[in-house]
Design a protein around this nucleic acid. Sequence first.
DNA 1: ACAAAAGTGTTGACTTTACACCCATGG
DNA 2: CCATGGGTGTAAAGTCAACACTTTTGT
Lengths: 225, 225
Amino acid sequence: MEVNNKLYKNQGIHVITSIFTVEQGTTKVLLIKRKNEPFLGKWVLTGGALYNNEDLENGALREIKEKTGIENIELIQSKAYGKLDRSPVMRMVAISYIALIDSQRVNILKNTRNTSDAYWCPIDKVPALGFDHNEILNDAIKELQKQIIKSNILKSLFPNGVTMPELQKTYEIILNKKFDRRNFRKKILSLNLIDDTNTTNKFEGNKPAKVYKFKKKIEDKDIFL
Amino acid sequence: MEVNNKLYKNQGIHVITSIFTVEQGTTKVLLIKRKNEPFLGKWVLTGGALYNNEDLENGALREIKEKTGIENIELIQSKAYGKLDRSPVMRMVAISYIALIDSQRVNILKNTRNTSDAYWCPIDKVPALGFDHNEILNDAIKELQKQIIKSNILKSLFPNGVTMPELQKTYEIILNKKFDRRNFRKKILSLNLIDDTNTTNKFEGNKPAKVYKFKKKIEDKDIFL
DNA sequence: ACAAAAGTGTTGACTTTACACCCATGG
DNA sequence: CCATGGGTGTAAAGTCAACACTTTTGT
């Protein structure tokens, strides 16, 4: 590689995270409002340009912390985006991540050096976003749906354990489908994502529900036949 | 984004393709030998640095053409790699692609401006590659295995149609598993990847086999329950 | 007529779906 | 004792796995 070739100059990398939460019966994504050009005043996903002294995931985490205040978050890589015109400033390639957090547990910054607002937007009410973030978000939603049935991504919503009814509600919201209670329980247990604890959780006036915990590690499933 | 911030300088993007073929009972990947530093004389996957006037896929295609002579190839995006030290020259983020082609149909260049050799290497005999290409390749093999059961990626091996026995051999090689002939046929037909033509293919001294064609478009499968 | 490879159907095992009643708790 | 939501089992349907014989062709 000839480092000084003009064709290699002025390239950069965006790290963009679709941060999801589930609340009030709907899946929401964290949107932030830009304080600078380009797309000043536009809503976008959380992210920004990668520094040359940090790896992809650390860059995504730094951007998340700077622009939202959120720390200690687990990321899953989604896709890469490289259309020539995806940023008006400079040639930028974007690496997209997804994350899921409990919005109750974090305090979102509404005003930072680069952002003037932030909110949890229901995914069926997302406005026109800056850059190619609508496309990135749509792919991320599909990836989230795939991840909840094969990874422990939901663990972050339930760090202290979860009951079957809670879990079922969450699946129903994210996948936008209803399940039978008995069959859901069997299916989830067969996926081997959670372990029984021997505790129960009491809510008012109801039978206590068993508490389960997400496994630390999930083994890969077999592919075919 | 402050374009002149030093932290954004000197970043580049690699586009790397694991080009597979299936022959002589084994899956092979195209390796090329580097003619320049870094990793002069080392075997690597097909790829190089993206230009700032081409999008990701076009960049990958250009690199493939330049370094191997192969044209008209379909790519599937795999993962992104961003460790700080993955290139010794400069900070490079890699976007990985996979492709599958019929090695009989192409003539691989053995000597180009940047390469001094090229060969189809059985995937169980891959040497230590330059950069992080062993890691990229291992992920690509898994992705290839996923793709053959949900996409028409195998079409490129059989542009003129394929018979069940041929297809079965290919699946068995790529997935490294044996299948029952009757069950394989049922499974493949249920995957809706191929269409019956009403022709048969004669081989010497055997019963002619029905010829199938890969569909142009494959619809996505449902996720859960 | 025989060798070589292709085509095909059925049964049992397993998995998935549909469905209804009892239980524990707080008020 | 009642209202609320949680827990559980079974039968029917569908899917998957195992298995052997017949067909077509060229020699």
